[in-house]
């Protein structure tokens, strides 16, 4: 990797910010206090560019801010009507791809998908619902997956491999059938996952979640009930 010492400057929506070479655009924006909406990115994990919600226009072309390295003199558009429409469309696609029933969901108010949708002003997903049949795996004593809410952000895949050192999660299949794989048998109970694993704590929709924690924080007083989602803290 290139070293991080070289100071560079770039503009985001006309505001000049400084960064260091080797940073990604989203890192530079975060450091400057400029929020670029995102879903799959997590500050403790390497970026992978799955959700494309952080799409920005860089020197006239589009790209994901989470993976784009900064360069001196970059001209970036971020908070524009065109990009926010595109992002809202992506969020709507994400909603109809899975089964996201906020009214009954135990993590409503504490869900990054919902929070980004709120922040972008989505009233409802406008694409036809795909209503896929998804499984719930409760085979592990402490951790479960409700795949209805999985958005294929890959945070669990990265965290399990790179931080937990367990490589429990991966992918299987392709296209709309692509799904998170749990080793070979798709049963959490047959893995070495623990409730304290990073993989369990990074899920944006908490479809991978520790058991017996639901409703500890009542609806209405959760993270995103009153305050919009913003730049995440590094752990």
């Amino acid at each position: 990797m290139s070293d991080r010492n070289e100071r560079i400057t770039l503009t985001i929506d006309g505001v000049e910010i400084s960064g260091e070479s080797g940073m990604t655009l989203i890192e530079a924006a975060d450091a400057a206090g400029i929020y670029i909406p995102r879903l799959c990115h997590h500050p403790d994990l390497p970026p992978t560019g799955h959700c494309r919600v952080c799409t920005v226009t860089v020197n006239g072309g589009n790209g994901a801010a989470c993976t784009r390295p900064v360069a001196d003199g970059m001209v970036v558009e971020n908070d524009t009507e065109r990009l926010n429409t595109l992002r809202r469309n992506l969020i709507e696609m994400t909603f109809v791809e899975g089964n996201h029933y906020c009214p009954e969901c135990e993590v409503s108010g504490d869900c990054e998908l919902q929070a980004v949708a709120y922040r972008l002003g989505m009233t409802a997903p406008h694409y036809p619902a795909l209503n896929p049949e998804r499984e719930i795996d409760g085979s592990h004593p402490d951790v479960f997956i409700d795949r209805n809410r999985c958005i294929l952000c890959g945070r669990c895949v990265r965290a399990s491999a790179l931080i937990d050192g367990k490589s429990i999660f991966g992918y299987k299949y392709r296209g709309i059938h692509k799904a998170v794989a749990v080793v070979v048998t798709d049963r959490l109970g047959e893995t070495e996952i623990e409730a304290t694993d990073k993989a369990v704590s990074v899920c944006p929709t908490q479809c991978l979640r520790v058991k017996r924690r639901g409703f500890r924080t009542p609806l209405g007083s959760r993270r995103f009930d009153r305050e919009p989602i913003g730049i995440p803290e590094r752990e």
């Binding site: 089964n99 029933y101 009214p103 009954e104 409802a124 997903p125 619902a129 209503n131 209805n148």
Partner: peptide, 12 residues
């Protein structure tokens, strides 16, 4: 009215 809501949970 907007998404089918809780009744739409039967859709799968």
């Amino acid at each position: 009215a907007l998404t089918g809501g809780v009744p739409a949970m039967r859709n799968t």
